[in-house]
């Protein structure tokens, strides 16, 4: 593999993994605090799977550069993380959490479906494996968006607020990272342009069927994964607190 392609692939894998780790963190905040016991279990399921997916992506990166997944998660600083800003946003209410998860899962599912044909076999294999779980997540969150959108006036209003707030942020999922064009040209990853078209088509239809309207002004649209919200520092301060607590610790 040419070095520039390898570097681009490492960057893409890091972005995929970081998205999952940070979103999993936000979802984990619900554990023990969900609206009904059954949903504590459901969201813990999603958070767990996301962490599993992150591990898969970090392991693929490890094959390329030998980096230690735990080292990446627990010893990088905020400016070294490459997740999108959407996943950093506070968990908000149940509407916000479910809508973010739906829009994220939809993107992930579409991306994985195409990534199964990746010319880079380890990535194709990983995509095949992760897609299985992701299909279920999508069914689950899609069902929630529909129910809250069409439920009560209050649930519809909360969903609409969430949509108005996050729509701009979701567009970052389709902003190529530096070197992405090389990976696309090599058939290693899906083209985000085509992906965005399908994502828009599917998501808009489901949102409309759920009684929700796209915001007229999409608001702030983050453009680079080197920029973060003011939340990331605090997320990492918490996430890394135990791992960094004892420099002499070898095994956790």
């Amino acid at each position: 593999m040419r070095n520039e392609i390898k570097q681009a692939l490492i960057a893409r894998l890091t972005a995929l993994a970081d998205d999952e780790v940070i979103l999993s963190h936000r979802n984990s905040e619900w554990t023990g605090h969900a609206p009904i016991l059954e949903e504590d279990i459901a969201l813990a399921n999603i958070a767990q799977d996301e962490l599993g997916h992150a591990s898969v992506w970090y392991s693929l990166r490890k094959e390329l550069d030998g980096s230690d997944p735990d080292g990446l998660v627990f010893f990088r600083d905020a400016d070294e993380f490459r997740n999108c800003e959407l996943v950093e946003l506070p968990r908000g209410d149940w509407a916000f959490t479910m809508l973010r998860q739906f829009l994220f899962d939809l993107n992930e599912t579409l991306w994985l479906q195409q990534a199964r044909d990746s010319s880079y076999q380890p990535l194709a294999d990983a995509a095949n494996k992760i897609l299985r779980e992701e299909r279920f997540h999508l069914q689950h969150t899609q069902a929630w968006v529909e129910r809250l959108g069409l439920g009560t006036e209050e649930s519809n209003r909360r969903m609409q607020n969430a949509l108005d707030f996050m729509w701009g942020y979701t567009q970052q999922l389709f902003v190529p990272i530096p070197g992405e064009d090389l990976l696309v040209a090599e058939g290693i990853v899906p083209d985000l342009g085509g992906l965005k078209t399908r994502w828009l088509e599917y998501s808009i239809q489901h949102l409309q069927n759920s009684g929700l309207k796209l915001p007229i002004n999409p608001g702030y649209q983050p453009a680079s994964r080197t920029h973060h919200t003011e939340h990331l520092w605090s997320i990492l301060a918490e996430m890394q607190s135990t791992a960094r607590w004892d420099a002499a610790a070898r095994v956790w």
Binding site: I36, L37, E38, I41, A42, N45, F136, Q139, H140, A143, R147
Partner: peptide
């Protein structure tokens, strides 16, 4: 058993709880 609002929701919930 699970507590759920409608049949599809009950199935999704059952999967989360009994197929961990």
């Amino acid at each position: 058993s699970v507590h759920a609002a409608d049949p599809q929701h009950a199935l999704l919930t059952a999967r989360n709880i009994f197929a961990r």
